[in-house]
Structures are given as C-alpha cells and as structure tokens.
C-alpha cells in the first residue's frame, strides 16, 4: 500500500496497521499507535516476555527501549509530515533514567526543528507513571524532501 493511503487511514480512520506495515521492525516489536489525540499520537509498546533483557529483575532490554523510541520517532514523522518515503536515521542519543519494568511502555514525540532536509525529534518514554520517564532521547532524521520516489 502506498504511504499516502496508509497515512490517510491512520489519520482519518485511526487505523495505523498499514502505516506500521511500512516498518516491519515496528511490527516485530509489537508497536501500536494511539491516535485519540490526532495532534499528539502516543506510541504504545505492549509488554511481552521476549522483550526482557534482564530476567533477574525482570526488566525490558535497554536496547528495546531505545529501538522503541527510535521507532516511535519514525512513526511520529510518518504520521505528522507528508513524506513520501521513510525518513533515514542520522543519529540517535538516549539517556536512561530508570530501568524499564516488565509492563507496557509509552512514548510521545515532538518535532523541535523541521528543516527542508533534516528533522530533529525529542522522544519521551514512560510506563505506569507519565511523570517518571524511563528514558529521554533525541534523534535526527534525513527527509526525502523532493527526492524522486
């Protein structure tokens, strides 16, 4: 399915399956998109055992938290911008504030700078208590812009 149609379904029907389908790894992690507030989508990572990185605590793998937040930023851009192709990651930086428990995780994103070629995205990840983030991250993405599809 074309990006345009997938985006329309997500925005208008709140059905993000097609948009997620463009990013197989997001599907693999089990990502969901909550479009209750279309202006501020919340990315949702339901807990599953295969995400555990430390069986003793247990805690979600730090790498999973990072890739969830990277995926969240990517999906946020696909939803909020009108890009015709999936933006490319330039860099990603994450600060871990607390260990992520064996429970659902959420992320919200903000595009703090949108240029013609580069977008800067701030990402916040939390679990049960939104006031106590598990991690904060930022990422730069290269936009396709006018590049022919």
């Amino acid at each position: 399915m074309k990006m345009e149609e997938a985006r329309r379904l997500a925005r208008e029907q709140r059905d993000s399956a097609a948009l997620l389908g463009l990013v197989p790894y997001a599907v693999y992690l089990g990502l969901r998109i909550d479009m209750a507030d279309p202006a501020a989508p919340v990315l949702h990572l339901p807990f599953k055992k295969s995400l555990i990185g430390n069986s003793a605590l247990p805690a979600i793998h730090g790498g999973v938290v990072a890739s969830f937040m990277e995926s969240a930023a990517l999906m946020h851009l696909l939803l909020m911008l009108d890009e015709q192709r999936v933006p490319k990651s330039i860099d990603f930086s994450i600060d871990y504030l607390r260990s992520a428990h064996a429970e659902d995780s959420y992320a919200s994103c903000a595009v703090e700078r949108l240029g013609r070629r580069v977008a800067q995205v701030q990402i916040r990840c939390w679990q049960a208590n939104p006031a106590k983030p598990v991690a904060l991250a930022r990422a730069h993405f290269l936009l396709a812009g006018d590049e022919p599809a």
Binding site: L22, V23, P24, A26, A66, S67, F68, E70, V86, K88
Partner: peptide, 22 residues
C-alpha cells in the same frame, strides 16, 4: 522482520542500537 524501510530495503536502526547496547 528487521527491516525499517521496505521500499529501500534497509535494516531498522533500532536493531543496530539493540545490538550495540547488548
């Protein structure tokens, strides 16, 4: 399932981050 961009056939950078952290 590690793909992040089906059209360009690119691996999702999150896979790389997870590998690095581990």
């Amino acid at each position: 399932e590690f793909l992040g961009d089906v059209e360009r056939q690119l691996i999702h950078t999150g896979v790389i981050t997870t590998l690095i952290d581990s």
